[in-house]
Write a protein that binds this DNA or RNA. Sequence first.
DNA 1: TTCTTAGTTCACGACATTGGAACCAATAAA
DNA 2: TTTATTGGTTCCAATGTCGTGAACTAAGAA
Lengths: 117, 117
Amino acid sequence: MRPLVHPAIEDITVEGILHVLSDPVRAAIFASLAASDSARTCSNFIQMQDKEIPKSTLSQHFRMLREAGLVRSERHGVEMRNTSRCQEVEQRFPGLLGAIMQAHAAQCAERAAKEAG
Amino acid sequence: MRPLVHPAIEDITVEGILHVLSDPVRAAIFASLAASDSARTCSNFIQMQDKEIPKSTLSQHFRMLREAGLVRSERHGVEMRNTSRCQEVEQRFPGLLGAIMQAHAAQCAERAAKEAG
DNA sequence: TTCTTAGTTCACGACATTGGAACCAATAAA
DNA sequence: TTTATTGGTTCCAATGTCGTGAACTAAGAA
């Protein structure tokens, strides 16, 4: 089993961040991690947006989030504990994650409104 | 020749914007368009970042920028005039493009500094 | 040792991206 | 008129990336 790869803060790229967050599932995972104080495991996200995400897909999503520098993962026994690296990224690219998450949230609210109305 | 497709402002998505700007060439094109007052043609961008972009590739990049809602293109005779849709997008997702472009600029400056030694 | 849990890796099909070659449409030159 | 040129598009084949089921691993419990 390969060791977990976490880029140094200075190796994080804007392209990488944008690409990894351009997928709605990964964006939702990241939003949830960013909003929560404590670490969350991968399997917390098997149910998302009214559908099941296969374990293997989830594993890839977490790898991509990790290698883009957005998430820190640590193995604890049999499970993985994931936290966002928001604060570090905020230092490097001020305002970026906030703006993206806000836009995602706005779009999400808009869709919910359209759905209901 | 297919007509040019421009999404209505309410059909522009965050995912679409992030994906299209996660490519360094497209990000550079968009930054240049956003910074310039007047329209620019496609062929203005054949030389970018010390290398040539093939015409066909450039054409695809512009199509993607257009269909994501970031750029407006109009045929004028033999050429295309492209402008950014910054202001519209700003209305829909306030702060998003600004934060992204600022992060790109910061990264660009950083790379230039590292290059210079 | 065997089982369970949580996640990873592999392999393959589906889809996206790149770029050369051929093409089209508008205008300028002959 | 034709013919040539310019600016961009479309087609297609090679290559790359993504999502997923099946098989696997590693840690801890029974």
